[in-house]
Design a binder for these strands. Structure first.
Lengths: 106, 106
DNA sequence: CTTCTATTTGGCTATATTGCCAAACAGCCA
DNA sequence: TGGCTGTTTGGCAATATAGCCAAATAGAAG
């Protein structure tokens, strides 16, 4: 694999990797229902505010969410709702695994 | 977020995370064109065979690929071709970022 | 200006991931 | 059996990530 090919896959993987964490996946799912401010998200996640803020920064740097400051709050929302397609595919992978596990057990 | 919710998102994130690495994303892309044995993939990736094997193990454990031993070779193939949907979405995220960057520059 | 609230950043430790080498393993063939 | 090829596993060092606390920043309101 040459350098430019590697860069191409690395940059794409970076976006996927941003969703590859339980908390961040939860944030994306929650944002699919509309914009939320950091404090709302922090409440839902139940982690330190700084932790949630850093997760949101990862999603923002990957281009998955955007932020908008209003007053002294920051509202986050999905920039590319297509990321929700991931959920259906992941369910299908889990389904396939589960089905196969049952078949093996028979 | 309660424990069962956390587990739910963690297990889904684990699948996404498996794709969140340049080499593994490349492997999935290559496997979308048909099954390949480890030595073919190793040739294409250009890393140590053990490295490629470990990446394939990550994809296998996530349920994304399956392996089949024939003779003394192991052939890998996609178990859930829907993962290819990720590519289109990732392109769209990159497109959005690029478009916005251009607009900001104007 | 001071204070208060909301958020981000810096810094740290604990943990996880990556990629290489060497060794183990498995199937094939002489 | 012994050697050969293809693959996986164990182990290690380097690097990256996660999450907490404390400190910095920014806007709002007194």
């Amino acid at each position: 694999m040459d350098d430019s090919t590697r860069r191409k896959y690395d940059s794409r993987a970076r976006i996927i990797k941003a969703m590859g964490h339980g908390t961040r996946l939860f944030l994306v799912d929650e944002l699919s229902r509309g914009e939320r401010c950091v404090c709302e998200l922090q409440e839902l996640v139940g982690a330190d505010m700084s932790t949630v803020s850093k997760h949101l920064a990862v999603l923002r740097e990957a281009g998955i969410v955007k932020d908008e400051k209003r007053g002294n709050q920051v509202f986050y929302s999905l920039r590319c709702p297509c990321v929700l397609n991931f959920f259906a595919c992941v369910e299908s992978v889990m389904q396939t695994s589960a089905t196969q596990a049952v078949e093996l057990a028979r």
